[in-house]
Nucleic acid binder design. Structure first.
Lengths: 214, 214, 214, 214
DNA sequence: AATGAATGAGGTTTCATTCAT
DNA sequence: AATGAATGAAACCTCATTCAT
């Protein structure tokens, strides 16, 4: 099943193999339901080696979260060209995001579903990554507003709200796209972009929707 | 702690007590980490009684999912007045949704986080509820389009995508509102409405954002 | 092997059976080498029941220490008649002590050997019992000195030193008597009494041995 | 931490380093709780080297027992001058004993506590040393009796009992002195000498304590 | 209607020990 | 002379589940 069982690998390589197996197992079974036995077997090593290198189930899970969070962040960053206009950057970033989550569904499950359902060491860990993404998006939205000479200038609070909603919707759509056949990354990105860009424009041109008198 | 320990309750009441305890425990600990011991203790009954009434941990979890899904659906339906215009209906539905998730955070955790991370019997169960909500929202969007004499008519596929994105964003915001202090249900609803309505209007007036040449 | 395997005993009885098995196992194998599996089997129950009733290996060991320390103390106290003269009381106490340690060699091993080699929760626990015994002996020696109208009065510090040496020697002899065939409790007691009483008399008559000029 | 990590030492030296580390670890943690990992690390070598030189944990422990037993015996022997009178020899031997055990508490813990709590290969090993010490003391007591023209001659059996009690008391006091702050080796030796010499004199002058009619 | 007593199965973790270089 | 890589076996502990009343 797992990787070809080749013996006596250098530590760094084995560690990556173990984390690959761990991400797959955690992503599919969840943190609690995943067993170290299964992870070790999938990695093609014995359980004690997993403990020798990665210390404990908790540490292993944390390591996975950090590795995959880094990987996702880098994928998004690598996908955008900072020379382009803001809407093109956002579009590129969303595509990169959905492509990455589609290509690494277990990693996405670890980051989005499992890490958030299992309490404190982990929630913070993904929280950091999410904050970085939100900051990135916030920057893009701000830049877009300036490019459009938005008048009156978009309030910071509105920008933040938009960014939160956008990232939230993206997270949710990623899960949906993964779980639903025949939804391509590009399609998910386009749907969201449509949604998001419209909201942006309306806000920038001071045409917000207002609640009826409560 | 749990309910006052009074003996000899009719079955229906006891069952509800057990499910209350179960929802709380599942919501906070997760499906795997929750133990039948803890649930029984919190419910103020012995473990065999839980098994007598609810059969197994899996059945108990399913029962919780169904009960809470129903409860959420009813809350949303009860919140909207079908006589109002579509945007007012949407606004009311969102508020009802966010109020309910804020008032029942454990139930929301069960539906949104725990049920979706634990494989097949459960994922389908929440899937049904979600489909009903999506259908409901789809209906609203369609109605809104007709009210606006949208021309050309909004494609069904676009409506579906929008509804998905809207529901996804709502789900995401519900978690965010629950986890973040000082975010009221009303605020979450307004943020999302702003976001959503703008996208809707743009689409209905045929001003979609189009991707640059791929 | 173990107790007859009779099912559905009341909790208190089962607990005693488990502790009997535990004392035997801990006494013979040592704290670390004893396995909960072995204890459970010897007690004729399954391992989970041991954990249900006694919580953890550490708690089980502590419980054994406390029970056996109590038992030994009571045996010694029951053995002496406070109406008798001090030397007779000492003699009776020693006999009771050696009889008890001979009849419960595993318990004595737990108290004297195992508990003292395994760090802090346990060392204090036996320390308490030992202190009670030392106090008891100190009282007897003081009484003996007064009965003999010791002149000059025996210094408190000397009494304490004697009591420590006496108890230490008794502890040591108990192990020796248990490990050596053909040494009766009575014989051990007589040897020690001989040894101790002589020291007492010399001290009481102010004939201490003095080191040569260092 | 452990020895400075210098490579390519001759085997004999490395072996001593390992045994130093082993004695320290066994003495503090106990036989079972000590891990070969810890010993190897403390010795500044890799685990396979420990196995290459010392074969197994059991062999390593045995080797420690033998080395430390020898060391203690030699210390005691070196402390006494056979030209002196018997009481001076006893006094010197006790001092040497207590000094050695105080200076090597881990070694003493190995010999007195750990070796005796872990079954057969080890118990015999320390038993040998103990027998040598008892024989040595027996000789001294006999000599003292002869010097004193003890009349009637002290029965061999009494001498043996006394020697056992003396050695037992010494062992016990050694532990007590190590565990109790502010008890010097000299003080422990004096306490015991006082105790012992009095008993000896009484016996030699045929003034034994006799139990009341049993 | 309800429970005290009990367990099979499986989880994480540690450890003495060996292999190949 | 020395070690990095690796493991079989067994330890402690937990949990869903049932039996007998």
């Amino acid at each position: 099943m797992g990787a070809v069982k080749s013996k006596r690998m250098p530590r760094a390589v084995r560690e990556q193999q173990m984390m690959d197996a761990a991400v797959r197992t955690f992503g599919q079974r969840g943190y609690r339901a995943a067993s170290m036995d299964e992870i070790a077997e999938l990695a093609g090593v014995s359980k004690p080696l997993v403990y020798l290198y990665l210390n404990s189930k908790e540490d292993l899970f944390s390591a996975c979260i950090r590795r995959e969070a880094q990987s996702l962040l880098e994928a998004v960053r690598a996908g955008v060209d900072p020379e382009l206009p803001a809407d093109a950057q956002l579009w590129a970033g969303l595509r990169a995001f959905f492509v990455h989550t589609a290509e690494n569904p277990d990693a996405w499950s670890v980051l989005h579903r499992q890490a958030r359902s299992h309490g404190e060491p982990f929630v913070s860990e993904v929280g950091c990554m999410r904050d970085e993404i939100v900051a990135f998006v916030t920057g893009l939205i701000g830049a877009a507003a300036r490019e459009a000479h938005s008048d009156p200038a978009l309030a910071d609070r509105d920008v933040a709200g938009l960014a939160q909603a956008l990232v939230g919707a993206a997270e949710s759509l990623a899960g949906w796209a993964n779980d639903t056949p025949d939804v391509s990354a590009r399609e998910a990105a386009a749907t969201l972009m449509n949604f998001a860009w419209a909201g942006l424009e309306n806000l920038m041109h001071a045409r917000p929707w207002t609640p009826p008198a409560a």
